[in-house]
Design a protein around this nucleic acid. Sequence first.
RNA 1: GGACAGGUGGCUGAGUGGUCGAAAGCGCUCGCCUGCUAAGUGAGUAAGGGGCUUCCCCUUCGCGGGUUCGAAUCCCGCCCUGUCCGCCA
Length: 420
Amino acid sequence: MLDRKLIRENPDFVKEAALRKGVVAKVDEFLGTDTLWRKATHELGEANAEMNRISKTIGQLMGQGKKEEADAAKSQTAELKARIKELEEDERFHEAELCKLELTFPNLPHPSVPDGKTPEENVTVKEWGDKVLASKNHTEIASELGLIDFERASKVTGSGFAVYTGLGAKLQRALINFMLDFQVEHNGYREVAPPALVTSQSLVGTGNLPKFAEDLYKCEGDDLWLIPTAEVPVTNLYRDEILDLIDMPYKLAAYTPCFRREAGAAGKETRGIQRTHQFDKIELVKYVLPEWSYEELESLVTDAEDILQALGLHYRVLLLCAGDMGEKGCKCYDLEVWAPGEGRYLEVSSCTNFEAYQARRSNIRFRRAPGEKPEFVHILNGSGLAVPRLMIALLETYRQEDGSILIPEPLRSYMGTDVI
RNA sequence: GGACAGGUGGCUGAGUGGUCGAAAGCGCUCGCCUGCUAAGUGAGUAAGGGGCUUCCCCUUCGCGGGUUCGAAUCCCGCCCUGUCCGCCA
């Protein structure tokens, strides 16, 4: 959600910025509706003020025992009351229209974000580590070593799911624990373990609803949805709250399973566990002061990179172009890890500065000093990291001549072994 | 799932039809006093929206409806919290 004042005062700026994302924002429609809404709001206010005056007078007359005069005053209210009802309906109607329009506006890209429409126009800003070549892909490796059972997974739940078995299951658990511990111990995050189901309202707060309902799993019979990422429950943690400046920035790290319908996705890029309907992920979420949010974005990226470096995996960092970064972000970096067996890079993290977009939707604010007006916080998040794709990179990178997998040093204590 | 109790400002908590957007206390801000004090004292202190913007108006007492000239207060529905019972990993 954008600042209404910004749209009113700089309609052309909003149009142009939205256009960089390839979105034709209905700014003119918004302005028209906004005018109607403000007119209705204003008239309703005046009508209410009049009614309040009359009511107050009646109260006073009653208090003085002047019942007849009070009754006389009462008789004048009928018309006004009807008018108020009409104006209320007007106001409500325009307000609803306004909300509907507002929710279709994308967040505006930061000036430092490059132009572009397609993934090809994203800019590689960094590469780290050595690119290992030639290897079996992870599905072959996993079957060889008995780490993942795809056949039985599809029997139980259908396609797009995996059953991790033996040391495969343990590797998943090791990665989760390692990543969480790392972020808490080295980068100052606080661990939270949120629910995996959330209400519609929470999904509106993060911008997943109303536009992206078809990407989500909905529970029949309840207003509950399976989360597509921990971003949803964690961002909503402080909904409708005014945060303490002293505690900022808030840095939270959460592990959850994530559920995505991935409707339409199929083919080579879904092989194995590259894109499953359920996967595990560590999510990093930060609530920060507006003036620091771009510095915080950079450090969020390095926090996520730390994991890849600790595991010694080759990766690159992309700065996404305006057209490829999605609706909600202002600036977004993707971390892509090299998967030798697949022969391509896999996205393991997407670090985004949303500025006040989500804070406005979820009403999360802070106060600079006692007595001052609350302001919206800036919210950022990024994966730290997605487990299955990380596991792919690990298996494919650390496969040795004899077919076994060398476990990187930081994971050994979690695995209880240095080789699979 | 059943029964009962309750949801009020940053917090505690009073308020059962009319100057109540709301007593009191805590906290906080500014000032005074006191030669040291986690003391005393005075004033201020909710949010959102709108306007003819040193001031005024509207909305908000869990949420949504209703009754009424007027609702924190009465009625209906829902949500949430607590306690007890039942059930259960």
